[in-house]
């Protein structure tokens, strides 16, 4: 009856969440009374789910080390070795045409995650060692340096903001969690006197904090990092298998355990 008014492409777009609101409503109403229509929609939902189920494992394989090295060599040959000293790539806001109504594309995540992986790979800094000079140990990113960070990571409860010892930088602890390998990690932001905000993640490694992710964002007037850098962060967190943030008690316990 009413089934005839929707062609396959409309029903497919409905199944994929790509229809405008009005047509979505019309399809929904029609499906309530038309089983055949519902079945046709279900066919598109099921093919999507099954295709993904079948293909995702193949695509999700990590990049082989040999391939990565080979491309790195190739880039170095063409670019005169510039990759070793690459400055931090500012994370630009995504294009405005990103559709707000669609769940965030999985596509964006690997791009973002790989961009930040480069940041981490290029920077790869240690936040000081277990030496007496530890309090002075800092983080240097693209010419910015942050003193007192290890101590702040050790002791600042999430949700609190402090001024870092020995600098004008403001440090905000955002969350504490474990990554997929069970390492303790902290997400934090640092407002630099230079108006930049670092959005960063540090994880415990060999008894010290290692910064594994950092995006340098020009901060807004309110000092908070723009949302686009948080997209990169989200992508990174899912890439490392970050668990749920610890609650206050668990965080206190985890932090006291490392001191």
């Amino acid at each position: 009856m009413t089934g005839q008014q929707f062609d396959d492409e409309i029903l497919m777009a409905f199944a994929d969440g790509e229809l405008d609101e009005a047509t979505t409503g019309a399809v929904e109403r029609a499906m309530e009374t038309d089983d055949d229509l519902a079945l046709r929609v279900a066919l598109f939902m099921e093919t999507r789910a099954r295709a993904r189920e079948a293909m995702a494992p193949m695509l999700d394989q990590p990049v082989p080390e040999a391939l990565r090295r080979s491309i790195e060599d190739m880039v170095a040959r063409h670019g005169g070795g510039d990759t070793q000293t690459a400055e931090v790539v500012a994370f630009r806001p995504a294009a405005n045409d990103r559709r707000p109504s669609i769940a965030r594309s999985r596509w964006i995540a690997p791009i973002a995650a790989s961009t930040v992986a480069v940041l981490a790979g290029v920077a790869g800094y240690w936040l000081g060692s277990a030496s007496p000079a530890r309090q002075d140990a800092g983080l240097a990113v693209a010419g910015l340096s942050v003193n007192g960070l290890p101590a702040a990571l050790d002791s600042t409860p999430s949700g609190e903001e402090i001024v870092l010892a020995g600098s004008d930088a403001r440090f905000r602890a955002i969350a504490t969690f474990e990554d997929g390998d069970g390492r303790l990690c902290r997400e934090f932001e640092v407002d630099m006197p230079s108006q930049a905000t670092l959005v960063s993640v540090a994880c415990r490694q060999a008894g010290d904090w290692t910064v594994s992710f950092v995006v340098v964002a020009a901060s807004g007037a309110d000092g908070y990092a723009p949302a686009s850098s948080l997209d990169a962060l989200d992508a990174y967190l899912s890439a490392i298998g970050a668990g749920e943030p610890l609650d206050d008690d668990d965080e206190r316990e985890a932090l006291s355990a490392i001191r």
Partner: peptide, 9 residues
């Protein structure tokens, strides 16, 4: 080159 490395995955 930088972009290639960044989006290798």
């Amino acid at each position: 080159g930088k972009q290639l490395l960044a989006m290798l995955p």
